[in-house]
């Protein structure tokens, strides 16, 4: 079991208010990702759940029990750090076994569990090496091995893949997701990579300035962002925002259209007119950065190759069903 509930959790460092009241309900076995810009408090919130920081206010419930006064060792969670934080003087075996040893488990049982964890993570050949004799990806696996071997109530990951190169990151992303599904253990995962967030999460928490902006499944956030911030943060390339007369016609202060929901027509009629200023041809996609005069710069994405070049005149026709409308305060208007 690993159900985690946050109730009005607050954290200040001295006079600085970092987490401004977070409420969250994390279901047992789910994979929840915290995303948000740098400095928004993702790590802090994770450390509060871990118990590495004390809350300033509010409650944290694990399986219904308030743990704000329980030390990290007794919360039954394990954590994977961005820096891996392996014990440098211990072998891989020693690193993975450490938590079990602290729990006072019998030697042969420890051995059995360590070997099993190592086998799952393809670490068996490295069991007797020291961390400094491993590659970055292998170290990360050891850190994950150390976390799973204890069969915790939940895993906490703080940007565990950010020190790996791009190819390895994709591979580890798949491995972590597969492992979590296989074990069925609750996981909280911090990242600022929104591809990681979209692909790994059952549910995403978007944080901004110490507040939870929205909590929902990846597609919910994509299709129904609560506000301008979430709309701009989720999705790549970013959603286009248009203000002024055009927005007013739709009964909104700002309207937003994702690049993939703009139909591109060469010299077309209707829609929004502009001039291509940059065209990126990826083969699979074409990204157009269009100077649309009073509307500003707009981004459009076309699936496939589109033979357009800087200086070409185009018109962009938004899909009327996928125009997002926002009011004065940036909140989403849902018809």
């Amino acid at each position: 079991m690993g159900q985690i509930t946050l109730q009005g959790v607050q954290k200040s460092f001295g006079p600085v208010h970092i987490i401004k009241g977070a409420d969250l309900e994390i279901a047992d076995g789910s994979f929840v990702v915290f995303v948000g810009p740098s400095g928004c408090g993702k790590t802090t919130l994770l450390r509060l759940i871990a118990g590495l920081e004390d809350v300033t206010g509010g409650a944290i419930l694990i399986d219904g029990r308030n743990v704000v006064d329980v030390p990290p060792a007794k919360r039954g969670l394990s954590m994977v750090f961005q820096s891996y934080a392996l014990y440098p003087h211990m072998s891989v075996r020693g690193n993975i076994a450490f938590g079990l040893k602290m729990a006072g488990i019998a030697k042969d049982e420890i051995n059995r569990k360590v070997e099993a964890a190592a086998a799952t993570l393809n670490l068996t050949p490295y069991l007797d090496r020291k961390p400094r004799e491993l590659s970055g990806g292998q170290r990360q696996r050891v850190a994950i091995g150390r976390a799973i071997v204890r069969e915790p109530k939940a895993f906490l990951f703080d940007e565990p893949l950010s020190n790996l190169d791009a190819a390895l990151r994709v591979q580890m992303r798949l491995e972590v997701t597969r492992l979590q599904k296989q074990l069925g253990t609750t996981a909280i995962y911090v990242t600022h990579d929104q591809v990681e967030a979209m692909t790994m999460a059952d549910k995403i928490v978007v944080l901004n300035g110490g507040k939870i902006e929205q909590y929902g499944s990846p597609l919910e956030l994509y299709e129904k962002p609560n506000n301008l911030f979430v709309a701009g943060f989720i999705g790549s390339p970013k959603m286009n925002f248009v203000t002024g007369e055009l927005a007013k016609q739709q009964g909104a202060t700002t309207i937003g259209v994702r690049p993939e929901h703009l139909k591109v027509e060469r010299n077309g009629q209707g829609g929004w007119h502009g001039t291509v200023s940059v065209a990126e041809h990826l083969g699979s996609d074409t990204f157009l950065y269009v100077d649309a005069g009073p509307l500003g710069m707009l981004t459009a994405r076309y699936v496939g190759e589109l033979d357009l070049h800087p200086g070409d005149k185009v018109s962009l026709i938004p899909d009327p069903a996928r125009i997002h409308r926002f009011d004065d305060s940036g909140k989403s208007i849902r018809a």
């Binding site: 871990a50 590495l52 030390p71 990290p72 060792a73 007794k74 969670l77 394990s78 954590m79 750090f81 820096s83 934080a85 392996l86 014990y87 440098p88 450490f98 938590g99 602290m102 729990a103 150390r146 204890r150």
Partner: peptide, 10 residues
């Protein structure tokens, strides 16, 4: 981090 990891490890 390493000390915190030990703390998390119980």
């Amino acid at each position: 981090d390493i000390l915190e990891a030990a703390r998390m490890d119980g």
